[in-house]
Design a protein around this nucleic acid. Structure first.
Length: 466
RNA sequence: UCCUCAGUAGCUCAAUGGCAGAGCGACCGGCUGUUAACCGGUAGGUUGCAGGUUCGAGUCCUGCCUGGGGAGCCA
């Protein structure tokens, strides 16, 4: 008789009613402890953070010896009876009547039933999803991605796929990855003996996108509310726990909206995501709270209920000027906030997430709307304790004349972005948006403090393994 | 890119300039309810790489490589 296959997720949910029933499970061994005539296997079947204890006995298994020798990492199918064990560490276990070895794992399997360093696990990135930490991290990553879509879809946003390959060279958001089919050893040359990109695949210089914002602005003037959620590429030589060459960014854009609407959206979104996680990943969050960052849950619950702070850049400068803290970098109006300043603001002065708005125009991008004072732009950064900047956004400059003047200041030829200025000519309205670093949100919500540990196969400077 | 710390067994780490070790893992054996099981035994090393100082270098010096942390850039 073919037994119906069960999952650990189902068992956890319906343990009471399934007690005494025969079930079939398939999964991977996390730990195997054999004794003379019986043994215990911690089995993880991938459907739940928790592993299930399988009890096997010589008396009931024809292949007891084989099972007892199975190493960590081996794959098996288990048929057995679900037994409630209220007095034990685990609420229930499986008494095996049959175990089929699906795939053995020899003694050089690198993952042991103990704590490994994150650095070591990065070197075995193909196996690390079989550890508790990465099981939890990538479950949360998946849940958060879904929550992002749900948040926007519930509010009538259109999900927009902006191009991965672009010819936009104008935004200045960091170094670009060139996309080319030219032979690097023998490229075609023009009359000036320089590489002739007109003979490249697209007939021009192209690169991987550093942001979908400009394209999102085109769509927001048709759909009113749009968001992008996709990979982004920066060829920066950044060596920090917060930067990757390939990461995912969420970029909502809203029309008929100003900077305040923008912040309201950002705040509502961050809160929504936290609440979603606490409601849907309780086991994983409890794990992070215990083993990754003590007090994480308390911090997030507080975050979900308290308002974020909002201060202008000029207020922030005053606040920093009055601080007793000794800063390495001087605080002065006109220069960008240093990491130590941002940390002081969000961690010490205010002790919660803070929107800093209205930065000096000189240190922000050309597309940000010039304020009436002529000195600042309607920009906003969201700073959070521990991680720093997770959101950067602005109200966009919708006035053609001002936009062109600002392009001039930044040495951008308006012809190169003719379509972008066109958007202002034809029914342009005030609009705003922001970019949210998806990985930084995961870091912030899980306490995992290195971006390389929240990306399945991270790409960073000098590292593109797997 | 700059500053800083580190690199010793598969993993986590010890070793005053003087015999290269432990715990875990692996392998072999024991154990009637374990749960990072426990107990006994065995194997396992070009001390990141290349030079140098020294009677003698894992240890000191120089360069390089790799990794962590900090800074810049940013999400």
């Amino acid at each position: 008789m073919q037994m119906e296959e069960a999952t650990v997720r189902q068992l956890v949910k319906d343990a009471e009613s399934l007690a005494g029933k025969e079930v079939l499970l398939r999964g991977w061994i996390r730990n195997n402890r054999d004794q003379k005539a019986f043994g215990f296997i911690a089995l993880n079947d991938g459907t739940h953070f928790n592993s299930i204890q399988v009890v096997y006995e010589q008396e009931y298994l024809s292949n007891f010896e084989e099972v007892a020798r199975l190493g960590v990492g081996s794959a098996i199918s288990v048929s057995g009876c679900l037994a409630l064990t209220p007095e034990a560490k685990q609420p229930f276990e499986i008494k095996a009547s049959k175990i089929v070895v699906e795939g053995e794992s020899p003694g050089d399997y690198p993952i042991q039933p103990k704590q490994h360093s994150r650095e070591f696990l990065r070197e075995v990135a193909h196996l690390r999803p079989r550890t508790n930490l990465f099981t939890a991290v990538f479950r949360v990553r998946s849940l958060l991605a879904f929550a992002v879509h749900r948040f926007f879809q519930e509010r009538g946003f259109i999900y927009l796929h902006t191009p991965i390959i672009t010819a936009n060279d104008a935004e200045g958001a960091g170094e670009l990855f060139r996309v080319t089919t030219l032979d690097p050893l023998n490229p075609p040359l023009n009359e000036e003996e320089k590489v002739d990109f007109s003979r490249d695949f697209f007939g021009r210089k192209t690169n991987l996108t550093v942001s979908g914002q400009l394209e999102a602005e085109a769509f927001v003037l048709a759909f009113r509310k749009v968001y992008t959620f996709g990979p982004t590429f920066r060829a920066e030589n950044s060596n920090t726990p917060r930067h990757a060459a390939e990461f995912w960014m969420i970029e909502p854009e809203i029309a008929f909206a100003d900077l305040n609407d923008n912040m309201n959206l950002a705040e509502e979104m961050v809160r929504y995501l936290i609440t979603y996680l606490l409601d849907n990943a309780a086991v994983e969050m409890e794990f992070f709270n215990r083993f990754v960052e003590k007090g994480l849950l308390e911090r997030l619950e507080k975050l979900a209920s308290a308002d974020f702070a909002r201060i202008t850049y000029s207020e922030a400068i005053k606040l920093l000027g009055r601080a007793k803290e000794k800063f390495v970098y001087p605080v002065s109006w006109g220069s960008d906030l240093q990491t130590e300043h941002e940390r002081y603001l969000t961690e010490k002065a205010l002790g919660k997430p803070v929107f800093v708005t209205d930065y000096p125009a000189d240190i922000k991008a050309f597309y940000m709307r010039l304020n009436d004072d002529g000195k600042t732009v309607a920009a906003v950064d969201l700073l959070v304790p521990g991680v720093g900047e997770i959101i950067g956004g602005s109200q966009r400059e919708e006035r053609v004349a001002v936009l062109k003047q600002r392009m001039g200041v930044f040495n951008i030829n308006p012809q190169d972005l003719w379509w972008y200025t066109d958007l202002r000519r034809f029914g342009g309205v005030k609009h705003a948006g922001f970019g949210l670093g998806f990985e930084r949100v995961i870091m912030y919500f899980t306490g995992v403090n290195n971006i390389r540990d929240v990306i399945p196969f991270p790409r960073t400077v000098n590292s593109c393994d797997f």
